[in-house]
């Protein structure tokens, strides 16, 4: 039986510290609430209390917004929902994700170049969904507040891997 403890560096405890390179700032951020809502889009938006579901290259604003994931699914960020599970009244399935997604922000004039290492990203190719595969990782990718500020949500079990991959790419892009 092999002991691989040394091969895998110990994960961060608490939020990871800021990483800065030329034209790039990487942070871990905490969002107030993340809730998966599945079902008809209009009903889901009404439950989430939002009017627009962010896709690509939309820019989400504020601390309460909805991300468009699938034909019949959004992720509500911020906002308030009291009970989870099957909501028969509105025909929606809801699950509190809590910190199941870890969120990183990548900001700066060269942030887009870092993102282009992992996916064919372009403003010329819009998308109704912010789900994509980035350097092999399943993530949610969208812009928030500014056109050069990108938020990445990743399943928390792979957050350590994505953080390392982002750092590797930042090092190479700014070399």
């Amino acid at each position: 039986m092999r002991n691989d403890t040394a091969k895998w560096p110990a994960p961060a405890v608490g939020p990871r510290g800021q990483v800065q390179a030329q034209g790039i700032t990487l942070d871990q951020i905490t969002l107030p609430r993340q809730v998966l809502i599945s079902g008809p889009r209009d009903a889901a938006m009404a439950l989430a209390g939002t009017t627009q579901a962010t896709g690509w290259p939309d820019v989400a604003m504020g601390d309460h917004y909805a991300l468009s994931l699938r034909r019949d699914r959004i992720l509500m960020v911020g906002g308030q929902i009291d009970s989870f599970g099957w909501r028969a009244d509105v025909g929606l399935a809801t699950s509190d994700i809590g910190t199941g997604y870890t969120v990183f922000s990548l900001q700066g004039p060269r942030a887009e170049k870092v993102l282009r290492t992992g996916t064919e990203l372009s403003e010329k190719i819009p998308s109704a969904s912010c789900l994509r595969l980035w350097n092999g990782y399943d993530i949610l990718l969208y812009r928030h507040t500014a056109t050069d500020r990108y938020l990445l949500h990743v399943g928390s079990a792979l957050a350590e891997g994505l953080w390392d991959m982002l750092n590797r790419q930042i090092r190479m892009v700014s070399a």
């Binding site: 064919e120 819009p126 998308s127 109704a128 969904s129």
Partner: peptide
Amino acid sequence: PCPFCGLRDERE
């Protein structure tokens, strides 16, 4: 072309 998401590369 994903009918919902639009154009993506084959890895997806």
